[in-house]
Write a protein that binds this DNA or RNA. Structure first.
Length: 846
RNA sequence: GCGAAAGUGGCGGAAUUGGUAGACGCGCUAGACUUAGGAUCUAGUCCCGUAAUCGGGGUGGGGGUUCGAGUCCCCCCUUUCGCACCA
């Protein structure tokens, strides 16, 4: 008489093998099969396969998408649910330098580990469509799309000021730099002029902004993209320089304040600085410009409080009055925004005010501040003053009038400016996509033919820049580097590589048709599957991957290669999973296993420690590995806990005891169907109809309804609560009709698929529960016959009444007034008003 | 500084359009069954008072609207996240 307890460790590998063998999750590609059902494309942000392996944060999103994928399949959809690897990138290259192995070897090993870990969780991915951005079959098409961009004039080389990271030996995109540091490693970044590949994302600024509105995305992500694109409306104004032919443009959002412009400022990098500086000022200006050039962005922003600058000795002519206005150089004006020059209006701009005070420049108010205003620059509403033909006008009218004047007199025009810059698209790295271009000896850039792709990464002896600062690809042999053109000219290959974001710009399209050797994807597959119906991933990509991918998608749209203007219809960000960490007063961290509770204090051995919730990190000894969780409680418990912890979008701490709770729930579910003493079916299972257990039947239908709705809206924590309620009820019930058990298992199946399959087959079902039909609920069975009504006196709860569900107002009022408990609180007073909310409560007001 | 989101038991978190605050789970307490329990089952568990019935208080703080506020409005505090010399 062998005990047969719930044992995920035998049951989970068994069902995973059966799913594999039967190709249970193969996505159909046959046109007839596709046409027969509606589609659903549910996508995860594919991971970068790091050496550290998966942490419990990854599977949170993956579990949510898997539950949705399984639900949609059961509801009769063709589901596309793929997984792949964002496999080019810096860490593998650094590991290669460290360990002396090829990045491809290291990446391959990491991918194998990630795949193994992900497969243990029983996700219903179609592994036939797995993609890896570093394989030549894939990056061939990344290069192909680059050629499309080049053809359309959207890729160009230019000598531009770039973010150079000396520690990494490469340039970085604006999006990768924050506070003058590389966002991933914190290494400082400095400004340098270099000839680099750029992508004209700015051409798409307006569309990237406008097309955000209808998307079903979290509002804060849309807002972050809007801020990043940074649209502002204003005017471009031309200032001529006194006594010369030179002139410069400024951009301003406040053309109405032009009469308050008492000086102008050029950025230290502005090309005009060297041309207009007077001899007397030359030494001082040159020293200032040189100093600014040596500052990193970090230093430049750190010193933000103290404004510095020098006078060029030159004057500009005020566009309206013709008065001379001194021109200064100051590093609070950035070359990277607008035209790198400003008209300074200290009266209405605090930065200009600070600068004017420091250097004794005049201040003129052109907007009347309210009475009693004692601040410095005034930025609020008010009528124009000291402004000639604008006097008395409110700001919006004054702006329009000034723009009209400028346009009439050829002194400027209305203009929209964006914060978004063109995307710096090349890196001095080895482990990335080679550019499909050649450079002729005369400097001509020659794109390769489409049929010359892929340009494969050549072997090199070292993954470091060369002695003379060339990118690692310059180490390749001359047989790779040197090419003879059909016309006999010599050319060399581009030695920069594409940034790590390139491959992820279009991977969701490759999944549609992952083995196509003629095209990146077929038009038929694209038409059927796009757009992505649900995309889940971390918020860290809000302005990187998600902006870049939208840009490429729009280019592909303009090329007629995709049929939707946006790739991701619905986006959802899962919150980060945190963990408790333990520290003593010295700041030393202790592993959670070492910590025990004594009284109400925590100790690690003899040392008292305090606890806090932090991001998981190796150095804090608080990383939770999915492998450990699965080894202890199984994949189903892991899946369930990931979703039961709390709302998907929220940050929340991992609690080991929480996993035990859901594990117990799975055990109770097992015992509902299986008699643990002999392994046979539980004796309480009956063949009687569901209606033989009317109370349980009602709970079942409520459960189907709630789980279905909550799953669709990604409120999976409450869906799981409801399943727990069902199992608690079913455990209490005298009998369990098979009809009810069968329906419940199908509800459970998307969440705990291994256990559901096992119990389903034990009930004698032949097919896979993964392919079973989602049960329908009966609305009539979702409401109780008798409900509890609250009786309040003056808004305070005084009694509860059990009443039929359809009791009318009059009945409820009568019953409430007859309540003895409530009556006590009336203290003989006459009800002034009685409020009846059918189905809820009766409030007696005295 | 600007913008956004959020503050509910010992803990994670539930609460249709404003309508029983604390679902579900953890932890804790007591009991049962056990050779044993870090297994399982049963009961209890927001706080204060009470043997209990019951009463009072309670969703960061203060005010307001309402028969009724965790939910709506105003002010303040705290936390988290973006952006930040953007002209």
């Amino acid at each position: 008489m062998a005990k047969t307890v719930y044992d995920p460790h035998t049951l989970e590998p068994k069902w995973q093998a059966i799913w594999d063998e039967r190709q249970a999750f193969r996505t159909p590609s046959d046109p007839a099969e596709l046409a027969s059902k509606p589609k659903f494309y549910v996508l995860d942000m594919f991971p970068y396969p790091s050496g550290a392996g998966l942490h419990v944060g990854h599977p949170e999103g993956y579990t949510a998408t898997d539950v949705i994928a399984r639900l949609k399949r059961m509801q009769g959809h063709n589901v596309l649910h793929p997984m792949g690897w964002d496999a080019f990138g810096l860490p593998a290259e650094r590991a290669a330098v460290r360990e002396g192995e090829h990045p491809a070897t290291i990446t391959g090993r990491n991918i194998d580990n990630f795949r193994r870990q992900i497969k243990r969780l029983g996700f219903s991915y179609d592994w036939e469509r797995e993609v890896s951005t570093c394989s030549a079959d894939y990056y061939r098409w990344t290069q192909w799309i680059f050629l499309k961009l080049y053809e359309r004039g959207l890729a160009y080389m230019a000598e531009v000021p770039v973010n150079w990271c000396p520690a990494l030996g490469t340039v970085l995109a604006n999006e990768e730099v924050k506070d003058g540091k590389y966002v991933e490693t914190g290494d400082p970044v400095e400004r340098r002029n270099m000839r680099q590949w750029m992508l004209k994302i700015t051409v798409y600024a307006e569309r990237l902004l406008a097309d955000l509105d209808p998307l079903d995305w979290p509002e804060h992500v849309k807002e972050m993209q809007r801020n990043w694109i940074g649209r502002s409306e204003g005017a471009e104004i031309i200032f001529a320089i006194a006594g010369g032919d030179h002139s410069f443009d400024v951009f301003t959002t406040r053309p109405d304040t032009l009469f308050g412009c008492t000086y102008c400022v050029l950025s230290p990098e502005h090309p005009l600085v060297a041309l207009i500086t007077t001899e007397a000022q030359q030494r001082e200006v040159e020293a200032y410009v040189a100093e600014a050039a040596h500052k990193t962005d970090l230093q430049r922003t750190d010193l933000a409080k103290e404004k510095t600058g020098v006078f060029t000795g030159a004057h500009a002519l005020h566009p309206v009055t013709g008065e001379p206005v001194p021109i200064w150089v100051a590093d609070y004006v950035l070359m990277s925004y607008g035209s790198g020059a400003i008209m300074a209006v200290p009266g209405q701009d605090q930065r200009d005010w600070d600068f004017a005070e420091q250097y004794g420049l005049p201040i003129v108010r052109t907007v009347q501040p309210p009475d009693g205003f004692d601040g410095q620059a005034y930025v609020g509403e008010g009528p124009a003053i000291h402004s000639d033909f604008l006097d008395g006008l409110e700001i919006p009218t004054a702006k329009a009038r000034m723009i009209a004047w400028l346009e009439e007199h050829g002194a400027g025009n209305g203009r929209v400016e964006y914060r978004l810059r063109d995307w710096l698209f090349s890196r001095q790295r080895y482990w990335g996509e080679p550019f499909p271009v050649l450079h002729a000896a005369d400097g001509e850039v020659i794109p390769l033919d489409y049929d010359a792709l892929p340009v494969e990464l050549p072997p090199v002896d070292e993954y470091k820049p060369t002695q003379d600062g060339q990118p690692p690809l310059a180490r390749a042999g001359s047989d790779w580097l040197e090419v003879t053109l059909p016309d006999g000219r010599k050319a060399t290959r581009e030695t920069n590589t594409m940034p790590q974001w390139a491959g992820s710009c279009w991977y969701y399209l490759r999944y549609l048709d992952a083995h196509n050797t003629e095209l990146p994807f077929s038009p038929e597959a694209e038409k059927y599957w796009m757009p992505v119906d649900l995309y889940i991933g971390g918020v860290e990509h809000a302005v990187l991957h998600l902006l870049y991918a939208r840009f490429w998608h729009k280019v592909l749209y303009d090329c007629g290669l995709v049929s939707t203007v946006e790739p991701f219809q619905k986006l959802f960000n899962q919150g980060m999973i945190l963990a408790y960490s333990y520290q003593d007063t010295q700041g030393k961290y202790y592993h959670p296993d070492e910590v025990e509770e004594r009284g109400d204090k925590l100790f690690a051995g003899a040392v008292e420690v305090s606890t806090q919730i932090e991001k998981m990190s190796k150095s804090k000894l608080n990383v939770v590995s999915p492998d450990d969780v699965i080894s202890e409680h199984g994949a189903d418990a892991m899946r369930l806990y990931e979703l039961f912890m709390g709302p998907l979008e929220q940050q929340k701490p991992w609690q080991t005891t929480g996993v035990e709770g859901v594990y117990r729930f799975l055990q109770r579910t097992w015992r509902l169907i299986v008699d643990e003493h002999d392994g046979k079916l539980a004796p309480k299972l009956t063949d009687a109809p569901a209606a033989s257990e009317p109370e349980l039947e009602k709970v079942l239908h409520k459960t189907i309804k709630k789980v279905q709705q909550d799953t669709e809206t990604l409120q999976m924590n409450t869906a799981i609560s409801q399943m727990m309620i069902f199992v608690n009820e079913a455990t209490q019930a005298k009998t369990l009709p098979r009809e009810i058990a069968s329906a419940f298992l199908r509800v459970l199946a998307p969440y705990a698929p291994h256990l559901a399959e096992e119990l389903w087959s034990r009930l004698g079902m032949e097919n896979l529960i993964a392919h079973a039909e989602w049960p329908a609920y009966d609305e009539a069975l979702c409401v109780d016959d008798t409900i509890t009504i609250v009786v309040q006196v003056n808004g305070k709860k005084r009694d509860e009444l059990s009443v039929p569900k359809d009791a009318d107002r009059a009945t409820l009022e009568q019953l409430a007034l007859a309540s003895e408990k409530a009556g006590r609180f009336l203290e003989g007073r006459e009800p002034r008003r009685v409020i009846v909310v059918p189905g809820r409560l009766v409030n007696i007001v005295v």
